[in-house]
């Protein structure tokens, strides 16, 4: 084992980690926004839109993220749209996570007892106000553990961007390996970086899950 090469490449690795974090933050933010929107369309049973939402969810949950990434990265230029590697990765991760997050949030909304909405309506709240002030805040307590669990998966899934050549953590580590021929040491360091990012979130999920049934 030669850990020296890892130490020498530390700035490249940390730079890659930063790119991975950026990509994760973008995917989480945009995916959650899209997912919330789709969940609201489905629970409100908006005609036509909610059928489209269902097909969207089935296709993006039913096919591999890698396929979706290829589709955006190779498919859009084929249709005459220019996409950078970053844009392709963000688009694919957003569409993919939006489908999963929509189902997590929808399950959370449906877990709120019907009486809550009735009480809100009986007080004269509009459907929007009932959703915004009564249902959604309660959805959060139910949906938060699976949501954060999914975010952990999404952070790890940003690694797929390496396959289309985006310079995130794994791609940077491969270039170090090409130079140093020490794959195990470098991969161990990369694993450690991912672990340091994801493990605190995993612990948070465990804590939140323990709290929910107590309600």
């Amino acid at each position: 084992m030669n850990w020296h090469v890892v130490w020498e490449s530390r700035s490249v690795l940390l730079g890659g980690a930063l790119v991975t974090l950026e990509l994760s933050a973008l995917a989480i933010g945009l995916g959650t926004t899209l997912g919330l929107l789709v969940a609201l369309i489905r629970t409100a049973r908006v005609p036509v839109l909610s059928q489209i939402a269902r097909v969207y969810i089935e296709i993006f949950r039913g096919s591999p993220l890698l396929m979706q990434l290829f589709f955006v990265f190779f498919g859009l230029p084929y249709l005459g749209f220019d996409v950078s590697k970053l844009a392709a990765a963000v688009w694919a991760l957003t569409l993919y996570s939006g489908a999963y997050i929509a189902e997590i949030i929808r399950a959370g909304i449906e877990a709120v007892p019907k009486g809550q909405k009735e009480a809100a309506y009986s007080l004269g709240l509009s459907p929007y106000e009932a959703m915004r002030y009564v249902v959604l805040p309660q959805t959060l307590t139910v949906a938060l553990p699976p949501l954060i669990g999914f975010y952990i998966g999404l952070i790890k899934d940003t690694s797929l961007a390496t396959i289309i050549g985006y310079r995130e953590l794994i791609r940077e580590s491969q270039s170090i390996i090409d130079r140093t021929a020490r794959p195990l040491e470098v991969f161990t360091a990369v694993a450690l970086i991912y672990f340091v990012i994801c493990y605190p979130l995993s612990l948070l999920v465990t804590r939140l899950e323990r709290r929910v049934p107590a309600r």
């Binding site: 809550q116 009735e118 809100a120 309506y121 009986s122 004269g124 009564v134 307590t141």
Partner: peptide, 28 residues
């Protein structure tokens, strides 16, 4: 408008669990 003039009390209370007693009362 009608619903804001008609108060309703439910068998299962249906208080909003994420709000305290006063917040429940002042929300509407």
């Amino acid at each position: 408008q009608v619903r804001s003039k008609v108060g309703m009390v439910f068998q299962q209370f249906n208080l909003f669990p994420h709000l305290n007693a006063l917040q429940n009362v002042v929300l509407a």
